[in-house]
């Protein structure tokens, strides 16, 4: 029954198109946005520790707000907010920024946990040696903290990767959007959506297994 419904010819036709969309959009957004969120997350985490209270709590509020509201609304909000000023803005750039900022709020929590796992003796030693703040962070705290944070950052990147189809809300032609178009054109959705799912699985499962291995390896 399945063989009669699943048309292999259509599948063969769909696969290269979806793979191109995957490489050109899905992977590109994931890579650039995850770099952005890895950097921003660290900035937030250090900011929450170093900033004076009157700047710290608005930051905390902003991070909680972004973390607890859905990506599609954030995408639409930023996209149409920017379109007013720049009608020809590239939706892909908006997507990268929104994904980057959204996941940076999660990563900030991961960094925070990593920083908090550093024993107070390390901070005290840095103070005793009167190391300047930048040197304390760069040479003492971060190398240890990031080691604890690394698997968690990887896991959030995988989560972001699987959220990229939300780009459909701002009309970026990523893989799943293409799969829907292809299915609509051929009056058969099973081939294109199954392939799209398999491409996701093929990319995310090995990475997830790798992260679990890394986690075990980094444990003291």
């Amino acid at each position: 029954m399945l063989a009669a419904i699943f048309d292999w010819n259509l599948a063969v036709e769909a696969f290269p198109q979806l793979l191109v969309a995957f490489l050109k959009v899905t992977l590109l957004v994931t890579v650039v946005a995850s770099l952005l969120s890895i950097i921003l997350g660290l900035v937030w985490a250090i900011g929450l520790r170093q900033l004076p209270a009157w700047l710290g709590w608005p930051l905390r509020l902003f991070l909680d707000f972004v973390r607890m509201t859905p990506i599609p609304v954030q995408l639409l909000f930023v996209f149409y907010g920017v379109v007013v000023f720049r009608p020809r803005v590239d939706a892909l750039i908006i997507g990268v920024i929104v994904f980057g900022v959204h996941y940076s709020t999660y990563m900030a929590e991961s960094y925070r946990a990593g920083i908090e796992s550093i024993r107070s003796g390390q901070w005290e030693a840095a103070t005793a040696l009167s190391l300047p703040a930048t040197r304390t962070w760069r040479a003492v705290i971060l190398p240890q903290a990031i080691r604890n944070t690394l698997p968690s950052l990887g896991n959030w990147t995988i989560a972001m990767f699987k959220d990229t189809p939300y780009l459909i809300f701002i009309h970026v032609a990523e893989m799943v959007t293409r799969a829907r178009e292809f299915g609509g054109m051929k009056f058969s959705y099973i081939e294109s959506f199954t392939i799209a799912g398999l491409i996701f699985l093929a990319a995310s499962y090995p990475t997830a297994v790798l992260m679990r291995k890394l986690e075990k390896k980094l444990e003291y």
């Binding site: 939300y166 799912g197 996701f200």
Partner: peptide, 12 residues
């Protein structure tokens, strides 16, 4: 279900 995206599953 963890490895394929929510949206793919929704459409499927």
């Amino acid at each position: 279900f963890r490895g394929t995206s929510l949206i793919v599953q929704l459409f499927w």
